[in-house]
Structures are given as structure tokens and as C-alpha cells.
Design a binder for these strands. Structure first.
Lengths: 155, 155
DNA sequence: TCTATACCCGACCATTATACTCGGGATTAT
DNA sequence: ATAATCCCGAGTATAATGGTCGGGTATAGA
């Protein structure tokens, strides 16, 4: 019952992006430094986030990533599913939609509805929190300043 | 966000125990066969279930395991926690109680309350389902019959 | 046009967790 | 005595995780 580091990093990184919204794209190098996340690992994570349509990218100097949606439109659930795939606490729940994919073992199906309920609650919780809540009210946020260059965190 | 096979097996095995309640202990050999779970893996699982006080054991021929509580007193959450330890979707939530164990990274704490909420909902769901619900109404249950001997499933 | 900065991406690697297996030992009904 | 059963530490094969590496390609600015 654990989330991966990918998800933790992804959420934190997208918070950074959300806080940076108005100042153009934010480079992975900067996120890596400010969030203390391995730069190369971050690259992997952002490839998925881009493929899943959560962020856009700009190449070249002064490039980086930016949110494709408003912070209040991106839920933690979106991030989790982008980085870990569909949430399914047990294997027999993964893949296929509700009706099909029934277990071959009738006994297992006794417990199936528990796992379905669990899956639904997990999705509900994760879908109820959005990036704008995570970064807090505007008054809370540090004034944006253009960060310094180079570096990149490596554990 | 996955439960382990240990938990799946544990829940199924305890259902078997619950269905067998009145007929004395049930041996792992029988559970292994009827639930198609590796016998030796089941042994490991039941060691934990016993240490955590969910089942009692009887050694020797005609021995086996039995529930220490009524089926309506054992929740799926009890089983999960017995077999996987306390539920904590991210590491910084594991160990230590509410107040202490705060993250060293202030940024991470922005997201902390999401994971706490998630953890609490997961526990709620798992604690709301009990063994008696899983095995269904009495009318549903197959009449108990003394199972045949020997065997033990191995994948 | 050159160069540095950034994203892009497949492949690799080390560590850990998982899902078992193995080889015994202790207990007890028959 | 025998055989069934639980008890238990240690080993093992596979997969997932959390990275790293070595190259691309695009592009802003000198």
C-alpha cells in the first residue's frame, strides 16, 4: 500500500511548476536543485508527465516545462495515474473494465468488492485534492525570483 | 498502491477459517489445496497471523488453525496490518506518531496532509469490512464437509 | 554560424522487496 | 512409534524500484 518515489517527486515538481506559472517554463535543473531530486530521474518522470498531457515543454536555452492546465485543474489523482498507471490495489482489478476480467477463482470474488471499494475510495481522495490547494494561498507563497543556474541535485 | 499476495492469501485463508469455525481447527494443508495457495508460503503467513493474535493453533494430527475472534470481529484492516504492518502510503508517514517525525523538507510537508488523508481513508475502508460479510449469509455457504487428506498446493 | 542550454530517449545497473523454497525441529493424536 | 501437524530461520529467483549513462535533437543568443 505504498506510492512510489516517482509520484512523490512528481507531485512536488508539479507544485514547483504551479508556483512558477507566470514566469515561463521552469527547467528540470532548477527543480532538481530546489527539490533535491535526482536530475536524471526527474527527466524520466517528466517524459511521462508530458506524454500524459500534464505538462508542455520548451527546448533550448531558457526552456523547461510548464503546466498545460491551471493548478486548480490538476488533481493528485491525475499525477498518480500518469506516473503509476491506473490505481488497482490487487492485480485482478487491473486492466479491463468493470464487467469483464472477472477472476477465474470464485473464492477470490468474495473479496473482490472490498478491493473495488478500496480502489474507489483511493481514487476519490486523490481526485479531491488539486495543485492549487497544495501550494497554498497566494499570501503564503514566496515571491518568485529568477533562480541561479547550473548544478542539478544528485543524491 | 498495491497490496501484496500475502494479504490476498491471508484474507482468503481467514475466510476459509471463518467458514469452518465450528468444526475445530483447519489445517494449512487443506487451505492450501482448497485455495490454491503455496503450502509453505501459507505457513509463513500464518506465523504472522498467530503472532499478531488473529488465529490460534493446535499442533499434531488433526491440528490446524482457528480464529481467535468471531468473524464479525475481524476486519480486513486487521489482516492487512497484521501482514504488511501499519498502512502508510509514503515513507515519511511510517513510524512515529502524528506529531513527531515531521519531514526535514518543508516543501514535502505541503503534500503531507494529502498522504495523511489518503492513509486515513484507506484504513477506514479496510476497517469497515469484516470477515462475516466476506463469507456471505449462511444460506450462501456450502455445507461443511470434512476435506480429504494429503497434497498441498504448489504453483 | 557556433555554442551552450535545454529537452528527448533507450538502455543499463544496483538495491530492495516479493514470493516463494528448503531443511530441519517440536508437539501430539492414534 | 508413527505420522501429521505446526514452528522457524535461512536461502533463492524474479521483478520492481530508483536511479545512471550516453548519446541524441531543438533553439536562443553571441
Amino acid at each position: 500500500m505504498k506510492l512510489t518515489a516517482r509520484v512523490e517527486y512528481g507531485v512536488r515538481a508539479l507544485c514547483a511548476l504551479a508556483l512558477h506559472s507566470r514566469s515561463g517554463p521552469l527547467s528540470l535543473r532548477e527543480i532538481s536543485r530546489s527539490e533535491q531530486i535526482s536530475f536524471q530521474f526527474l527527466e524520466q518522470i517528466f517524459l511521462d508527465l508530458r506524454r500524459r498531457g500534464l505538462v508542455g515543454s520548451v527546448r533550448g536555452p531558457r526552456g523547461g516545462y510548464y503546466l498545460l492546465l491551471q493548478p486548480e485543474e490538476v488533481s493528485v489523482g491525475d499525477i498518480v495515474r500518469a506516473l503509476e498507471g491506473p490505481i488497482a490495489p490487487v492485480d485482478c482489478l487491473a486492466g479491463g473494465r468493470e464487467g469483464e476480467a472477472r477472476c477465474h477463482r470464485s473464492e477470490a470474488c468474495r473479496t473482490r468488492h472490498v478491493w473495488e471499494k478500496l480502489r474507489d475510495r483511493i481514487n476519490e481522495v486523490l481526485d479531491s485534492v488539486f495543485l492549487d490547494e497544495l501550494i497554498g494561498p497566494k499570501s503564503d507563497r514566496p515571491a518568485e525570483k529568477a533562480g541561479s543556474q547550473q548544478g542539478g541535485y544528485s543524491p
